[in-house]
Design a binder for these strands. Structure first.
Lengths: 200, 200
DNA sequence: GTCTATAGTTCGATAGAC
DNA sequence: GTCTATCGAACTATAGAC
């Protein structure tokens, strides 16, 4: 018995739709595509969900809730700024690994979906993420952990984009584990790619 | 007389369509949207272009040709590796500034469009970009300009993604000029955000 | 929970008048 | 170069049988 068979039909369909949305985009995936992949007809989908939007809504809202719960746990249990930055970034790469579909959908389609009233919470997602990171960077600059000649707003955008855009090429279960990607990313982000002669 | 009035009708329509494709995505923009924005009816568009795909094809193929011509000029005239990396990155941010629509379309819709035979050249774009960057990073590591403990493939993806994804928030003519973004980006990429105590 | 059948809409594209 | 008019395809969603 596979894991799939033990999940509810609704969860199966959510996973199937999530995979298609992530791969082709929300607008480029039809309800017939989803039904075909699930081995049923398109009309039957409406027994489980009342619209195509409801499917992506459930995927994204669940993901957002879980992600920020993880961030909150980290910030509550980690006082040191450098350790916080390290843990938040590692948790983000872990999310790319564990919830690849949802991250990909958010990256590719959030801009379009945010145009609808129903997905206003995606804006809240962006707002909270920004507040968290600008706070971390400000803390780091004041504590002496981070250099102070960078613009906090530009640096925040840089980190935000560079972490999540990895979903475009990262493949869960592939050759490179998420842990390795996080290690290399943190090395570049903290110390740069340039060789330092003055360390010795 | 505005600049728009001096351009050919075809170029006007290309610019209008480019703006809509960049803002909403190719699939989410209808030929009626484009015609409305141009003040004509949708059928009239087909006097200028034989399909919606032809419009985005012309935008992307022109952009790709110009971008690589710029890269080739830089590599021909700049022998030093560190200077090459600096100039290529500055040229990329300049492209985001000067050809914002095309970069946005490439970032958002290339994945979908590459599925069509007609847009196979977008794959060539990716291939050339990768070859160029892996070559630059390899040169830099062998010459001693760059640290050697980073994976060249991961570093290449990091740079590729982090440069182009800026198109999502950068606004030409806005508060922050492209030059400033490139300066800050190069600082982070080369030296990192961490404070170095051992410089003094 | 799935299927049959289809309504209602929107889309890309075409033909021919002006 | 634009408009009038429309075709045929594809899409989301619904109603009711099984």
């Amino acid at each position: 018995m596979t894991e799939t068979e033990t999940r509810s039909r609704r969860e199966q369909l959510l996973a199937i739709a999530g995979g298609l949305f992530a791969e082709r985009g929300f607008k480029n995936t039809t309800v017939r595509d989803i039904a075909d992949a699930a081995g049923i007809l398109s009309g039957s989908l409406y027994h489980h969900f009342d619209s195509k939007e409801s499917i992506v809504d459930e995927l994204l809202s669940t993901f957002q809730r879980d992600l920020f719960a993880t961030y909150d746990r980290i910030l509550e249990s980690t006082p040191d700024t450098a350790a916080r930055i390290d843990a938040i970034i590692r948790a983000s790469f872990d999310a790319i690994d564990q919830h690849h579909n949802e991250v990909a959908i958010f990256q590719n389609d959030a801009g379009f979906l945010m145009g609808f009233e129903r997905f206003a919470y995606l804006r809240e997602h962006n707002r909270r993420f920004r507040t968290m990171w600008v706070g971390l960077l400000d803390e780091g600059m004041r504590s002496g952990a981070l250099r102070t000649d960078l613009d906090p707003e530009l640096t925040y955008r840089f980190i935000r984009d560079t972490v999540w855009v990895a979903v475009r090429w990262y493949r869960p279960g592939g050759d490179v584990p998420a842990r390795t990607v996080a290690d290399q990313y943190l090395t570049i982000l903290l110390n740069g790619i340039s060789r330092k002669e003055d360390h010795a």
